[in-house]
Design a protein around this nucleic acid. Structure first.
Length: 908
RNA sequence: GGGCGAUUGGCUCAGUUGGUUAGAGCGUGCGGUUCACAUCCGCAAGGUCACUGGUUCGAAUCCAGUAUCGCCCACCA
């Protein structure tokens, strides 16, 4: 058994332990060190693979902590527990980061070219992946590194090709020209989810368009219609003006033509209910090529959609002097020119919401492009059916509503990206425009339609949205589309854990694609964590500079403390603030556990050999404190099991903290110390006491292991084990729940209460802490043996000497002096004999005693009155459950008794 | 414009299907050098559970509404 250093230094503990786990091959469910029971169903956790682009932050650490907690728990219960680690290539995010690095070197995506750029990316990713995997390891992830996967590895690539081909053949993927969200900074389209609505103050300009005189076909200098716009540059793409059909102001002009300035295009004035009569002038310019609303309006009215912006958001193709200007420069000039022509009717500040790129923060321009889309509606229906039927459960449940809303209003998913780092879309086009989608590596041999040879086909230059490959993660990592053994064994998976912020990006896509491609829901439970915020409640972000590096925390306080701090007091789906006090709390707890174990190990009676095999305490020698400890441990096992079942991990740590610190250390160890030190006791008794401490500590270390794996493993190594135990706690069995001993629990807790009350009385009377005070106590007959067994411990803890047991209250009262303090705890009654001198004048103590008792009496009478009122209520007695009424009666009797005794003591 | 969440002692948060003395950590006050731990030990103070109304024998907990803060979704130019 290893020696336990006096001081707890997490750094020394953690690295060595992780290496031992690795060496023992216990992370893999089928590893050499696994103790899994193949008869039990497997347990698979799905972790969001972190982006390769950088280092992990506290949010990742929290994810990992929660996931690892679940997988360790499942492993200890004997399930084949799979925690498959991975990385995401994060195409747009990675390119954004790399482009930044290149810019500093004076290079760019364009200057390198596709091939060199991708080489550079591969090198970049190689360096960052090591950092990320190292961080996961430091947090303690018991992940099966042999199964490490990457969304850009060859197996993922094949899964992506096969998935897309199947979707295409099922008419769930299609290519069309549509208005998409274009980021001029990233030079790619992005999905609706990647457009961040950002409130801004813009300007609402009113512009006069001149009506065409039907007689002359020329614009009328007098007759105009005034439209309102926040984007004057899009005037160049206008193909109509719209008004509300019921707007009397414009009824006469509907059907006439208006001339668009600068481009001299005559467009119809149409009536459409989309127009809000109350907004602006009630007349709207329609630009189908650059606005989602207008596009829809254009489709309804058969309007042409003109593209007037190039990829870099410069004006193009309008045949005006604005061509070649940046969109904002063009806007400025157009406004000035309108004003010069006298056609600017007004300008006012306007609060609006503008779409910006999630990645680059550029203003998104809607524009027409031919792209690939996933037809989401049929997929969403099946995902909804899965959650509605309960086959997949979302936790916390309230996110089900968000889920429903999003999936019922979902729009088709644009999966084309004009980027380089990612999976190339496996679609080929022949010179005649035929489309061939093929999952064959290297592409099809000929056009599907006209059989032109591969040499004449051209592959789509675009790549997939990174979330497309992420959406295949639960099954692509297990070997799909092959019927591999892992896929057969571990799919569908068990729990997917992630932050609620990517429920749409990722969870919904995994559900939709998983059900379609594998025929089953990819997981039975979706566990959504809250987000980690800084101590002020701000979201952590690099720009705010409040991002915390988990490694710094781990270096200082240990991974165990970090994990505990992240899990303790947190509830699923709720954000939590993270600061140093939580971390200190957690670190102190680890330290407490360390020292408690050190005490137990060092307190081994000499009659037990150091290398003794573990044995259960001899039942014949168990005292009440031992029964109490064992029973409480059972209770804790039950409470932890219940919390685990509910995914209430904060409750798990709360239960364990309370049980270990307050029950085991504060009382269990303190009560045991007296017995262990008493050499007048038979060796068997001391041995039983020690084996009890070991047994219960062992149980708590097991229960705590999923939360604090390192320190529990290190400490467990110092305890004697059974021959049947494996060499490592990580693969040891989760504790079973034993029977409770209600009587021992109640009696020992009553005596604990007595100690507390005596301490309280001492402190109130300002007795010197070192002073031993005589105490007389009346103990109900049923509690006699328990009291006798614990008498030395109580005496020590309450600093009561002698601690006399009086058989009757009369005997006690007759011995009472005027300066004594009475202590009533439930059925127990004690008198603390105050010193006549030394602690202050006798009269003072007496006054103190009176005021104490009067206060207690008033309080007790208050409760008694409340209890009586409740019982006097016939409705309560008649309608409340019998157990509640009985409890109330018992409480009433107890209070009545207490009031009587307090009155007696107070006298007249 | 919809939807969701939060509101509990000075601070950060628990409170699992409503059950009667609402808990914890930090902080605060007082006191502790006994050989597991000062990253500790003991004692204590501190809350009309945001507000209003309702349901119920009984509400921090369920319902309705109000207020403040936060988040998500949404095509008012």
């Amino acid at each position: 058994m290893p020696e336990l250093p006096k001081a707890y230094t997490p750094r020394d503990v953690e690295g060595a332990i992780y290496d031992r786990w690795l060496a023992a091959d216990v992370f893999a469910p089928d590893g050499a060190g696994s103790t899994a029971d193949p008869a039990l169903p497997p347990f698979t956790i799905i972790q969001p693979p972190p982006n390769v682009t950088g280092s992990l932050h506290l949010g990742h650490a929290q994810r990992t902590a929660v996931e690892d907690l679940m997988v360790r728990h499942a492993r200890m219960r004997g399930h084949r527990a799979l925690f498959l680690p991975g990385l995401d290539h994060a195409s747009i995010a990675a390119q954004f980061v790399l482009d930044g690095i290149l810019a500093k070197e004076g290079e760019s995506r364009q200057s390198l070219g596709r091939e060199r750029y991708l080489e550079r990316m591969a090198a970049f990713v190689d360096t960052t992946r090591g950092v990320i995997l190292g961080q996961q390891r430091r947090v303690g992830a018991s992940a099966d590194w042999g199964r490490l996967r990457f969304t850009m590895d060859t197996l993922s690539a094949r899964a992506v090709r096969v998935a897309f081909e199947r979707l295409y053949r099922a008419d769930l993927a299609y290519r069309t020209e549509a208005l998409i969200n274009w980021c001029p900074g990233c030079l790619t389209s992005v999905s609706d989810l990647e457009v961040v609505p950002t409130p801004e103050t813009g300007t609402l300009w009113s512009v006069r368009y001149h009506l065409i005189d039907p007689a002359t076909g020329a614009p009328d200098p007098e007759a105009t219609i005034t439209v309102a716009t926040t984007r004057p540059e899009t005037i160049l793409g206008d193909t109509a003006v719209a008004v509300h059909p019921d707007d009397p102001r414009y009824a006469a002009v509907v059907g006439r033509l208006a001339r668009i300035p600068f481009v001299d295009r005559d467009v119809p004035i149409i009536a459409d209910e989309v127009v809000d009569r109350a907004f602006g002038t009630g007349a709207v310019k329609i630009t189908p090529g650059h606005d989602h609303d207008d596009h829809a309006t254009g489709l309804r009215h058969g309007l042409p959609a003109l593209t007037i912006l190039a990829d870099d958001a410069t004006v193009t193709g309008t045949g005006t002097p604005y061509d070649g200007l940046d969109r904002y420069e063009a806007r400025t000039r157009i406004v000035a020119d309108l004003e010069a022509h006298g056609d600017l009717a007004g300008a006012s500040p306007h609060e609006m919401v503008i779409g910006r790129c999630q990645r680059s923060n550029d203003v998104i321009e809607p524009r027409l492009k031919t792209q690939w889309f996933i037809r989401t509606t049929p997929l969403a229906e099946r995902a909804l059916e899965a959650t509605r039927s309960g086959r997949t459960r979302i936790l916390p449940e309230r996110f089900g509503k968000t889920w429903e809303h999003w999936l019922t209003t979902i729009r088709d998913w644009n999966v084309s990206r004009q980027l380089w780092w990612g999976h190339r879309i496996p679609a080929w086009y022949c010179p005649d425009g035929h489309v061939t989608v093929s999952s064959v590596e290297g592409g099809p041999s000929a056009c599907d339609v006209c059989a032109r040879p591969a040499s004449e086909l051209r592959q789509d230059p675009d790549i997939f949205d990174t979330w497309f490959s992420s959406g295949l993660w639960p099954f692509s990592t297990l070997g799909w589309p092959e019927e591999s053994p892992d896929y057969a064994t571990y799919y569908p998976t068990s729990v997917m854990e992630t932050g609620y912020d990517i429920i749409f990006f990722w969870v919904a896509r995994m559900m939709m694609l998983g059900i379609e491609l594998t025929g089953t829901e990819p997981f039975h439970t979706v566990y959504l964590s809250g987000l980690i915020r800084d101590p002020e409640g701000q979201k952590m972000s690099k720009t705010k500079g409040n991002v915390v590096d988990p490694l710094g925390i781990i270096d200082e306080s240990g991974a165990d403390a970090l994990r505990f701090a992240l899990i303790h007091g947190a509830t699923p789906g709720n954000d939590q603030r993270f600061g140093t006090t939580k971390l200190e709390h957690a670190r102190n707890f680890a330290n407490k556990l360390w020292n408690a174990t050190r005490f137990v190990v060092g307190a081994r009676p000499l009659t037990i050999p150091q290398d003794a095999e573990r044995q259960l305490p001899d039942a014949r020698h168990l005292g009440p404190a031992e029964h109490w400890l064992l029973s409480r441990a059972s209770a804790t096992v039950g409470a932890v099991d219940a919390a685990m079942t509910d995914y209430a991990f904060g409750e798990v740590t709360r239960q364990l903290y309370e049980a270990i610190w307050t029950e085991y250390c504060d009382w269990g160890l303190e009560l045991a110390k007296v017995r262990l030190a008493d050499d007048t006791l038979a060796p068997g008794i001391r041995e039983a006491t020690w084996w009890t401490l070991v047994e219960v500590l062992d149980t708590y270390l097991r229960l705590l292991h999923p939360v604090m794996p390192f320190v529990t493993e290190a400490l467990w190594q110092t305890l004697p084990h059974r021959a049947t135990d494996p060499g490592l706690l990580i693969v040891a069995r989760w504790p079973a729940r034993n029977d409770r001993d209600e009587v021992a629990e109640a009696q020992v807790e009553a005596l604990i209460g007595l100690v507390g009350a005596i301490r309280n009385a001492r402190t109130e009377a300002r007795v010197e802490p070192a002073t031993w005070l005589p105490v007389d106590v009346v103990v109900p007959a049923a509690m006699g043996p328990t009291f006798e067994a614990l008498r030395p411990a109580i005496a020590r803890l309450a600093r009561a000497r002698p601690l006399e047991r009086r058989l009757t209250r009369q005997a006690l009262a007759s011995a009472a002096g005027p300066t004594d303090l009475a202590v009533l705890v439930g059925e127990l009654e004690a008198y603390v004999r105050m010193p006549g001198t030394g602690g202050g004048p006798a009269g003072e103590a007496s006054a103190l005693e009176r005021s104490r008792l009067e206060r207690e009496l008033a309080e007790a009478e208050g409760w008694l009155e409340a209890a009586r009122e409740r019982l006097a209520n016939d409705a309560f007695v008649a309608r409340a459950p019998a157990a509640v009424v009985a409890g109330a009666r018992a409480r009433e009797a107890e209070l009545a008794d207490q009031v009587t005794r307090l009155r007696e003591r107070l006298g007249p």
